[in-house]
Nucleic acid binder design. Structure first.
Lengths: 182, 182
DNA sequence: GTCGACATGTAAATTGTTACATGATTTA
DNA sequence: TAAATCATGTAACAATTTACATGTCGAC
């Protein structure tokens, strides 16, 4: 029997949690952040954000608090919220995340700054690199096998996929070096 | 007053339509296609696919038909289905698609093969290039302006975004050349 | 003769979209 | 002072996830 809180938390919830951990925001501020900054393809529609904020409050992961000089109230993560965020950031990477959920991995990376230590960050990047290499190999294998009998557009789209992951790999190598000497 | 069929068709619906246009598939075949081939981040869960197939049948965009030597029934697009697919492929590109919906654009590209003529294909790629250039410029502008006061991880994630779009741009130039001499 | 893949679905709960509604505050 | 932006929400609807349910068929 598991008595811990296991209510599901979607990746939008984590995106909000990560955002307000970096800087407390009002509901409206969160909406604007998702609409304007490219990070994460989450929609800032009120019908998505406000229910999410309710969810997170009910789970005890965030609270509304008057913050800063102007006494406007903004959302901040609770201790439980920070801990949930950290747990999310530390989740082991799987090949499936790389293949289907790369955006979320990048979001996790973006939010690591002041929550993980250097070792944990490097470990994330190393793990990412391993998985990327494996996945790229797999894709190339598939590409070789279907070479001839794939329509032109299908082949080009596939090659786009490979080029994409190679870019991600190159980036992760650069990022690793940057983090290493920080 | 608009009497045309305006029931919304999601991009999963188009993905299915495009897939069976290339090659008729059973419901199960479609599920496996989405699960295994990387094209499009759509889930092949039965709770998504079978309802979608019902939707498409109700809209008259696909039909079940016994096809090929083995008399197993597979889904094929109707004339209306092919026409809806073509319309989707020809939709003008917008900057927002590039920023938030690139996957869908790539999916559209992948399905163009035998539905659009050369000119239409080239026009798609040219339009994509223009938008990519504009968006990359915008991102770089933003990057310059926030240079200093962005946490390391945030900055790196942002640079990943830029590198990503540059890869897309390079790919689209190559694709254009390939299509041109085909 | 059992295990895994083929094959098709349903139900509940969750989540997100679109559109509406309201009012305060700032700025031109 | 009118328009735009800030600010918070709700309601109806559409879509997806997760889990369950059932049965066939071929391979080992």
């Amino acid at each position: 029997m598991d008595f811990s809180i296991t209510k599901k938390t979607t990746s939008l919830d984590y995106a909000i949690l990560g955002l307000i951990h970096q800087e407390p925001q009002s509901g409206y501020g969160i909406r604007k952040a998702f609409e304007t900054t490219a990070l994460g393809n989450y929609s800032g529609s009120p019908g998505a954000i406000y229910p999410a904020l309710k969810r997170l409050q009910k789970l005890g992961l965030i609270i509304k608090s008057t913050y800063g000089a102007n006494n406007k109230s903004k959302f901040v993560p609770t201790e439980a919220g920070r801990s949930a965020l950290r747990k999310w950031l530390l989740q082991p990477l799987e090949i499936n995340d790389v293949a289907k959920n790369l955006d979320e991995l990048l979001l996790r990376f973006a939010f690591m700054d002041n929550l993980l230590n250097k070792e944990e960050k490097l470990s994330f990047l190393l793990s990412l690199q391993e998985l990327l290499k494996a996945y790229i190999t797999e894709l190339k294998e598939y590409h070789k096998n279907t070479e001839g009998h794939l329509p032109v557009h299908g082949r080009l789209a596939f090659e786009y996929g490979i080029a994409s992951y190679q870019t991600t790999l190159r980036w992760s190598i650069k990022a690793l070096q940057t983090i290493k000497k920080s």
